[in-house]
Design a binder for these strands. Structure first.
Length: 195
DNA sequence: ATGGAGATCGACT
DNA sequence: GTCGATCTCCATA
């Protein structure tokens, strides 16, 4: 099976719409070891200057946040403790916004995911969290700044997502009023959504 | 130069 | 439920 990257113009939509629209799309990563792909089942929006939980809060522009000020559709990776998290940049030029991919459901390359995560893991443990899916798919800081509409790391058409649920984001308790924003989207009843 | 903090995970109690 | 791991970036001095 071969995947076709989505058209670049797809990313030119408001961040909250993009975050919801990404549900059901495929995230594909090609490496020398093989290709892995997963349906996106959980996302979170991070909206630039006004969002206390975003790295780009107050238009903070550093080496790390730089890519978020660029055009939409590029990859923003970020290292958290021992883990790597993956985002898609959105918003217009100079609007530092992004969508965090929190969970995917394995679609292709599942053997490879087991190899990377550990053969003794349950299937649901492969990709049901932002740090887990990057490890399963071999996504690292090396992917920072790459386009997400072109191999080796890209978004492709997937399946229709129904029963979308909306709620507050996770892991940002100390971010003031921002913690109450309903900027998290997920597929209801999908086992791969993080808890 | 140095220290602190963070969009997490897994092991252990 | 708590805690330790052990990274990179950024703010201080």
């Amino acid at each position: 099976m071969d995947f076709k990257p989505i058209d670049r113009s797809y990313f030119n939509q408001p961040t909250l719409y993009l975050a919801e629209s990404l549900l059901g799309k495929l995230l594909v990563k090609e490496t020398e070891e093989g290709t892995t792909a997963g349906w996106i089942v959980e996302t979170e929006a991070y909206k630039g200057p006004k969002d206390r939980a975003a790295h780009s809060f107050g238009n903070r522009r550093t080496k790390r946040t730089e890519v978020m000020f660029g055009p939409a559709g590029y990859i923003y990776t970020y290292v958290m403790h021992t883990h790597c998290l993956v985002n898609i940049v959105s918003g217009e030029l100079d609007k530092p916004e992004a969508v965090l991919i929190r969970a995917v459901e394995p679609c292709m390359g599942i053997d490879l995911m087991y190899e990377r995560r550990g053969l003794n893991k349950k299937k649901v443990e492969l990709t049901n969290g932002p740090g887990k899916l990057t490890k399963a798919m071999g996504i690292t800081n090396e992917d920072y700044g790459l386009p997400s509409f072109h191999p080796p790391l890209f978004i492709a058409e997937g399946r229709m997502s129904v029963n979308i649920e909306i709620g507050t984001r996770i892991g940002i308790e100390n971010s003031g009023e921002a913690k109450d924003y309903l900027w998290r989207f997920w597929e209801k009843h999908n086992a791969f959504v993080s808890k």
